[in-house]
């Protein structure tokens, strides 16, 4: 399984802070995103936002980054700390 977590505005808009996806056939962050976007029209719209950032196992990555069973994949808006 792959654990997927969401933060901030995205978490609120999805009304979901985390979920698990079966890891078969998921080899990249882009594929994880596509599976999530297929959940509903609203999810599709939210994941179409090109400014969303992704992290795998706490490391900021690009969409073509590889994912494996047991990974934690995170999606969130651009950061606004400090």
């Amino acid at each position: 399984m792959i654990k997927v977590v969401f933060f901030a505005a995205l978490r609120e808009q999805l009304n979901c802070s985390e979920l698990s996806l079966p890891s078969e056939h998921l080899t990249t962050v882009a594929q994880v995103k596509a599976v999530l976007a297929a959940k509903s029209e609203q999810w599709q719209q939210l994941f179409a936002n090109g400014s969303l950032l992704a992290a795998v196992n706490h490391q900021m990555v690009n969409n073509d980054f590889a994912v494996n069973a047991g990974d934690e994949v995170a999606f969130f808006p651009p950061v606004t700390g400090g």
Partner: peptide, 14 residues
């Protein structure tokens, strides 16, 4: 450190 914290560290303000 402050400049990078602003764009890299996963904090969000509401």
């Amino acid at each position: 450190i402050m400049d990078y914290l602003k764009i890299k560290a996963p904090f969000w303000k509401k």
